[in-house]
Each structure stands twice: as structure tokens, then as C-alpha cells.
Design a protein around this nucleic acid. Sequence first.
DNA 1: CAGCCATAAATTATCTATAATTTTTCCTAC
DNA 2: GTAGGAAAAATTATAGATAATTTATGGCTG
Lengths: 207, 207
Amino acid sequence: MAETSTTTADRIYENLSQRIIRGELIPGEKLRQDHIARDFDASHVPVREALLKLQAHGLAVSLPRRGMRVSALDTAEIREITEMRLVLEELALRHACFHMTSEDFSNADAARRACDVAEDLPSWEARNRAFHRAILAPCDMPRLMASIDDLHIASARHLLSSWKSGWQQHEDKDHAAILMLMRRREVEAACDLLRRHLRRADRITKR
Amino acid sequence: MAETSTTTADRIYENLSQRIIRGELIPGEKLRQDHIARDFDASHVPVREALLKLQAHGLAVSLPRRGMRVSALDTAEIREITEMRLVLEELALRHACFHMTSEDFSNADAARRACDVAEDLPSWEARNRAFHRAILAPCDMPRLMASIDDLHIASARHLLSSWKSGWQQHEDKDHAAILMLMRRREVEAACDLLRRHLRRADRITKR
DNA sequence: CAGCCATAAATTATCTATAATTTTTCCTAC
DNA sequence: GTAGGAAAAATTATAGATAATTTATGGCTG
């Protein structure tokens, strides 16, 4: 039944998580096992595993014996996520700053340019996320990066659901400046700018 | 079959996670589904779910179609966990400091006293963890606390496995001082002391 | 005797069926 | 007309069986 090397539970998880991030599955929506199983032409055993994984990444909440629902993002949790990002991304950046190789820099710069020329909000969001990942991942701290990835996904959900209209392509000066500071190994300045950048991004979605 | 209100998958998870924390299941050990299922007199469906939950909390790692193993804790990951604790517990403490009610304070003080009179290392570790949780949980940030709980569990594993011998009952001056500073709402001083306290605890296990 | 392929054993992943629980529906009593 | 509660429907959780994959075994060849 599984034609690729990945397991069917993983495919179901990937599909559902993407749909939750994009807002196609709205917060509070019930995730019924056999309905999903029918949609994927599978039994509900792998579906249960996919749902458990969603829960682990904060995309669903479980009510025992009452099923799973798409997790909600209230304003308190948004603030919580922003504050966690501020301290964890700073930590990652401090380590990354010293570990960045020239290859890491060219990858990050490619991600930066791709972000600047994105054509619409969803693709900009994905590329913006990729850029931030590119400047942090060289910290070489897998557990930290896993936490940051989950926070990024939560931020993405919020961004895509709250952005009303009026997005337009723009060159991100912060991104270029952060990269420049990292090249110069000016850690404190890079951290300061990243914090300001994240706070600014947070405020934009509040409008 | 399930006599309590909790699900059997949860009971299996609780049991396995406790045994991993205490070091009864050693890092790298294979977690075979039907062996565990036999031990718990259950089928392997709930066992798979328990294993997935262990993975989500960082206690097991999965090799697709090759099963799960108890996760290893190398020195790099220990350092990573300590650094994450430093920034996340400081963040939690800042919020908790302003949210602590008189009831929160008496709970925390009871946890502090219980920790001081612990009779052996394992019970001290559990009570020390409970104390730290008591002073942080009033931050009222559930996602942050979930991250901190997982880090505490990882620290506990390391502590219990690396502590050779010579533990003895002792009154923890830091704990009392942190609580006092929190009562006075001296946030910066409390954060400074918590950071020193965590670094000290980290050094002890290195000897 | 080492390397290698075929086969057997063990193990994971999934499916179908059943049990247990919750939610819904609908009837009755007041 | 509404509240209460039993019966039905829907849903979750677990069990038992099957398919697919990996690991172990053992004989064969060079």
C-alpha cells in the first residue's frame, strides 16, 4: 500500500499539518479518525498515529476518548510563542554566528534573495521561515532547532490566518543586515537586530 | 480492560517514561513492540502510541521500520539542554514573579521544605524538580511549561545516571533565597540567582 | 576460510473486526 | 413546552490477524 519509503502515517501527518498551517482546517475543527481514514484510503490506525504527531507538534489537542481538534491560537498563546521565539532564536543565533561556514552563508543568502522575490503571501511566509532557519540551524543544536521549528509553524499559522490583505513584495533590509553582522561575527549587534526584527514582525500581524 | 479513566496507551507511556528517567532502561536499548505488549498484557497498537509519545518527549528515537530505541544523552545534548533551561526558566520566572499568589507561595515553600528533607537521591531529584516547577508554573504559559517539563526530565535522566555516589541530605540556600526574592518581587535578582543555581547544579554532575 | 546469496525468523506497519465510550435522538412525564 | 432519560448512532480505543520489511542464519562458492 505504501509505495514510497515513508510510512503512510507520515504522509497523513504531512498532509494534515500543511492544511492546518495554511488555515484550510480551522481551529477547533474536529479531526474524526474514520473520516480522515476514508479520505486517505487507509484504516484509522495510521490516522491515530498522525493525529498523535500533530498533538506533539502543538497543531492538535486531544480530549481523551472524545477525539482530537485542531488547536486554537488565542492571543495569550501568540504572545507566549513570540516570547519563546525571542529567547530561543537569540540563543541559536549566538551559536550559529560562530559556526557559520562560507557554505552556510551562501545558503542563507540564497534563502534571503528567494524571500525578497516571493510573489504572494503564502510563498513569502514559507521562504521567510526558510531564511530564519538558514541563519539559525548552523548552531548545531538539534533539540533547540526542533523547538524553534514548532514555534515557527505556530507563528506561520497565526500570520496566514490574521493577515487581512495588502501584502506586497518587498526587499527585507533586516535580513540583509543580520547576515552582514553575522559575517562580521558581531554577535551582540546581530542578536539586537534579530530581536527588533521579530518584534516588528509580531506587531505587523496585530494591525 | 482499562479500569481507570486513563487510556492503556497512557499507562504504558507513564511506566516506560519513568523507567527511562530512572535509568532502568538504558540509552540505546531497543523497545520492541510485542515484547512490551506482552509485558503489559495488551496489543501492540497502544504500545505504538506510547512509543510515539516517548519520542515526542525526547525519551526515544525512531528509525523508520526499524523500531524505537531509548534516546542517548551525549555531552553535546546535555549542554544544549542546560542552555535552553537557562533562557526558558528565566523567561518563566519573570512572568511567574508577578503572577505568584499567596497560595502559590505556600505551595512553593512546601515543595522547598519537602526537597530539603529528602532521604535519598531519587526522591530528592523528584522533589527538586517539583520545587522548580512550583516557582515557574505560575507564569501561566502552558506551552513554555511543557517545554521546560521535557527539559527537566532530560536533566533528571542525566543527573540520575551520572551521579556516582556521596549524595547527602542538605538544606538548599538557593531555593530559600529565590523564593524570598520572588516574594519581594525583585525580578532581576531572582533571575540572576536562578541562573547561578542552574549553572552550579550543572557543574556538580560534571565532576 | 572469507564473502555472498537464498532462505528463515523476527519485527514493524497496516487492516479488519470488536469492545467501550460518548454523543445524539427521541420519547415520556410533568 | 421543557426536562429527564433510555435507546440508537457515531466515535474512539483495543484486539487479533495479515502484509511488508528488516535482520539473522546457513549453506554454497571461489
